[in-house]
């Protein structure tokens, strides 16, 4: 299946004449070398694919280039080098009109500080993208009401953004980004500006929505826990480059670089790693007994693992087919932190 977004060797440099600089830049130049020449490397040689229905979380500290990268995907930034294809189309080759059309029909984005239009009511904010593409008043009102209900803001349609709490404002931001029924959903640190309790609630809400809608998602965060909680795959960025891009299980168990390992150090791995992540191919051996659910974390299975008598435990996918075996000792090591 062709990826929805495919980035190949993407560069984004900021400075006086980035294109020319990139062409003449020596191979293997790092972030600091580039900075010494008076340029800032927002994105350095990033190649990543996002497949349909997948949630890719881009994780990094501030200044790591994660927000820049997502803005390259939607061409809010023009990239300096490499190619980005969205739905098989090179977005750098699009004319302004085509780009607008792409955004009007396929993309939605949620912003860290919400980016709501202060002079419009909740309903008018949500209907804004529909209004831009010229939908008539009646249909856009119906559709906006529908999404407002979806994010649980019923009864607040006529409020202005300043009359809402932060969590409610972000619900408006989410509703607006969903109004046009986008295929691709960009979320730039959507919950970072919220209190921890609200953040948790919004994450649950978000997972509920995603369950329902099944969008292709690029989600930005600086919070590693949030990344682990939400992601199908995580891309960890540093100084504009991707350090490692893998499933949460793999990242926690096999950090590729020292930088990534530091993030995983304090993580309770048993809560992150799933049975599926520990399972190895069956290799002809017939596993005995009832399989465990591959989507359960080791933490979920703790009691069963301790009571378990089998050394090799079969792991099944959602529909009950055995996909591999998990060694009990591996799981216990992870659980007890002895690995």
């Amino acid at each position: 299946m062709a990826p929805v977004i495919s980035a190949k060797n993407v560069w984004k440099l900021f400075g006086p004449d980035p294109e020319r600089y990139l062409r003449s830049m020596p191979e293997g130049y790092g972030f600091d070398d580039i900075r010494a020449d008076g340029y800032i490397a927002g994105v350095r040689d990033v190649s990543v694919d996002v497949t349909e229905g997948e949630m890719l979380v881009i994780m990094g500290l501030s200044g790591s280039g994660k927000s820049t990268l997502v803005r390259c995907f939607s061409r809010l930034h023009d990239i300096t080098g490499g190619t980005i294809e969205v739905g098989g189309q090179d977005i750098m080759s699009l004319a302004e009109k085509e780009l607008i059309e792409l955004r009007r029909s396929k993309m939605g984005m949620v912003f860290q500080s919400f980016g709501l239009l202060p002079h419009r009511t909740v309903l008018e904010n949500v209907a804004f993208p529909l209004e831009m593409r010229g939908q008539d008043k009646h249909t856009r009102r119906d559709r906006a009401l529908e999404v407002v209900r979806l994010v649980g803001l019923e009864g607040r349609e006529d409020y202005f953004p300043r009359e809402l709490s932060g969590g409610q404002q972000q619900r408006v931001g989410i509703a607006r980004s969903l109004a046009i029924e986008p295929d691709i959903w960009f979320l730039d640190e959507p919950f970072s500006a919220l209190d921890p309790l609200i953040r948790r609630e919004m994450q649950d809400e978000f997972l509920r929505l995603q369950e329902m809608l099944g969008k292709t998602i690029v989600f930005i965060t600086h919070d590693f826990d949030e990344a682990l909680r939400l992601a199908d795959r995580i891309a960890i960025m540093k100084d504009g480059a991707i350090e490692q891009c893998d499933t949460p299980d793999e990242i926690v168990m096999y950090p590729a670089t020292e930088y990534v390992r530091k993030f995983t150090e304090d993580i309770d791995k048993a809560r992150v790693v799933h049975a599926r992540g520990l399972s190895k191919p069956v290799n002809g051996v017939a596993p005995e007994g009832a399989p465990v659910d591959g989507k359960a974390t080791i933490q979920d299975l703790a009691r069963q693992l301790i009571d378990e008598t089998r050394e090799a435990i079969p792991v099944a996918d959602g529909s009950g087919n055995v996909i591999g075996v998990m060694q009990r000792s591996d799981a216990l090591d992870l659980l007890l932190g002895g690995a």
Binding site: L76, I100, R103, S113, G115, L117, P129, M132
Partner: peptide, 22 residues
Amino acid sequence: SPEVVEAGKMSGCTRWQMLTRV
């Protein structure tokens, strides 16, 4: 705010719409 501007762009505003509506 740059986010309001980006929200406008992502909503598919033309230049004229950006100016008058955002």
